[in-house]
Design a protein around this nucleic acid. Structure first.
Length: 462
RNA sequence: GCCCCCAUCGUCUAGCGGCUAGGACAGAUGAUUCUCAUUCAUCAAACCGCGGUUCGAUUCCGCGUGGGGGCACCA
């Protein structure tokens, strides 16, 4: 195992979204690529906004996406693993106190207005800040130089003392973040670019503790797609929540694959890649510097590729799990029938979540789409064709697709017509719509009795 | 307002001084198919602007513009 230690440090204050997942993923990939350690640390210091439900969501989402962590709370939420715990900040109060005291003792921190401030070294002067509309004390300091693995050399001036413990006694983010990273021996900090400006504070804190700062790598942000508007993607945007893709029956591997490609690429034209290949090729220097806009269409496409690739056993069991999750377990009563149905749909859909709607007429009477009906009934003599089909059906061989096809074809030829003359209206009568699997396999799976009944019912009401 | 980051088709991107600027998604057209979807062809689509550096800039530098982020006793 290498010395690389990276961490993902979410706050359980909201839904788990795409941006967080991507940050987690890059950390996870780097850990797995280097044979290092992936740490999950929960930043739950914000008592007011924390919730156990959101905490569970973090564990579940990471697990669903296949990102396992080496240290941190157990996925069950009970107990934890790793020797640098506790891994929840709410339980690390004593450590923060110790580090605060160290700073106080060394003169690098002081109390003012009931809060504890970190003290910058340098000449002090006062200036009016017209953004905050008040006079502030500034400090002349040498610029902080950050040697970022992705951004290169970044220089930033840190010129104001800042609070590390609020007057309510709670430590602030910058402080706990640095302390934990020191304590947990984090070697590389891979996080969103929105933290780049904060990094100068963090570097000063490392210096204050007399510790060498870890390697920084600030990854580009995920922005809204043009249709969604401007700015970075937030939990409120459509498609931003991991949960949504679970609900839509996406393959987590597809989501991970797509996310990996947002800001990184293997260096060639490959896009659909097994996770093992991504792990092998992933590295910090390969990460892009510019922000990427989220494209739900491309994600769907990638997911379709993964859906297509699943073998029938995988697809059927994945589908069954999905129906169960959606509270539609009644369709599973006849398992062999269910399997036949979903396998018919597999090559037609982009995500398993489309199945319930796409296959509904296999499990109950079809709902006739009136628009489609108007179109179909306007062409040729559909009612006559239907009647002919009903008459011919009882004698037809339903044992295979080819047998059914032959049956309909011979009927058509007998009347001097084509297969297509029966197809549209039969499809409408049986499924209620104009899109779906081939009419022959639809007939075969439904069975002759059901098909006949539906054709008759439709003709009677047409 | 101040500070930081970024800039190739609508989108994700390849390119790391000399290319007909490549691929993918989305879009258009055609073929295939019993419908739909797939698949397969074909098409359309980009180097933000201006100055430098150089024999030569998409590529290096500066400025401008544009986009993004940060400036709290939030995380």
């Amino acid at each position: 195992m290498s010395n690389v230690r990276v961490r993902f440090a979410p706050s359980p204050t909201g839904f788990f979204h795409i941006g967080s997942a991507r940050t987690a993923l890059f950390n996870w990939l780097y850990a797995r690529h280097t044979g290092g350690t992936f740490i999950l640390r929960i930043e739950d210091t914000d008592q007011a906004r924390n919730s156990e439900a959101f905490l569970k969501l973090i564990y579940d989402s990471l697990t669903w996406l296949g990102m396992d962590w080496d240290e941190g709370p157990n996925p069950s939420g009970v107990g934890e693993r790793g020797s640098y715990g506790p891994y929840r900040q709410s339980q690390r109060g004593a450590i923060y106190q110790r580090y605060k005291q160290q700073l106080l003792d060394s003169g690098r921190a002081y109390e003012k207005d009931g809060a504890v401030w970190f003290k910058l070294l340098g000449e002090r002067y006062k200036v009016f800040d017209d953004h905050r509309k008040k006079e502030v004390e500034k400090v002349k300091t040498s610029p902080v130089v950050i040697d970022d693995q992705i951004r290169g050399r970044v220089e930033r001036q840190e010129d104001e003392d800042f609070v590390i413990f609020r007057s309510d006694g709670n430590p602030v983010f910058h402080f706990v973040n640095v302390v934990d990273d020191i304590e947990m021996k984090v070697s590389h900090i891979i996080r969103g670019e929105d933290h780049l400006s904060n990094t100068s504070k963090h570097v000063r804190l490392y210096e204050g503790f007399g510790v060498t700062a870890p390697v920084f790598a600030h990854i580009p942000l995920i922005l809204k797609s043009p249709e969604m508007g401007q700015g970075k993607m937030s939990k409120r945007d459509k498609g931003a929540l991991i949960e949504e893709y679970q609900k839509r029956g996406f393959d987590p591997q597809a989501l991970v694959n797509y996310l990996a490609l947002l800001g990184w690429n293997p260096g060639d034209d490959r896009e659909k890649m097994p996770i093992a290949d991504i792990v092998k090729l992933f590295d910090l220097p390969g990460i892009n510097q510019s922000n990427a806009k989220f494209d739900g269409k491309k994600l769907e496409h990638v997911n379709m590729l993964y859906t297509l690739q699943q073998n029938s056993t995988q697809f059927a069991s994945g589908s069954a799990a999905y129906f169960k999750q959606q509270g539609l377990e009644t369709v599973l009563l006849d398992q062999p029938y269910f399997n036949e149905v979903v396998l018919l749909a597999q090559p037609k859909i982009k995500a398993i979540g489309e199945l319930p709607a796409y296959t509904s007429y296999f499990f109950r009477d079809p709902v006739i789409d009136s628009k489609v009906k108007d179109k179909v009934m306007a062409k040729g003599e559909p009612k006559v064709r239907l009647a002919e089909l009903i008459a011919a059906l009882p004698a037809m061989d339903f044992s295979s697709d080819t047998a059914i096809e032959a049956g309909i074809k011979s009927l058509a030829e007998g009347k001097g017509l084509g297969f297509g003359d029966y197809q549209a209206v039969a499809r409408l009568a049986v499924s209620g719509t104009n899109a779906g699997p081939s009419i022959t396999s639809m007939f075969r799976v439904l069975g002759k009795d059901r098909v006949l009944a539906r054709l008759q019912k439709f003709l009677a009401s047409a």
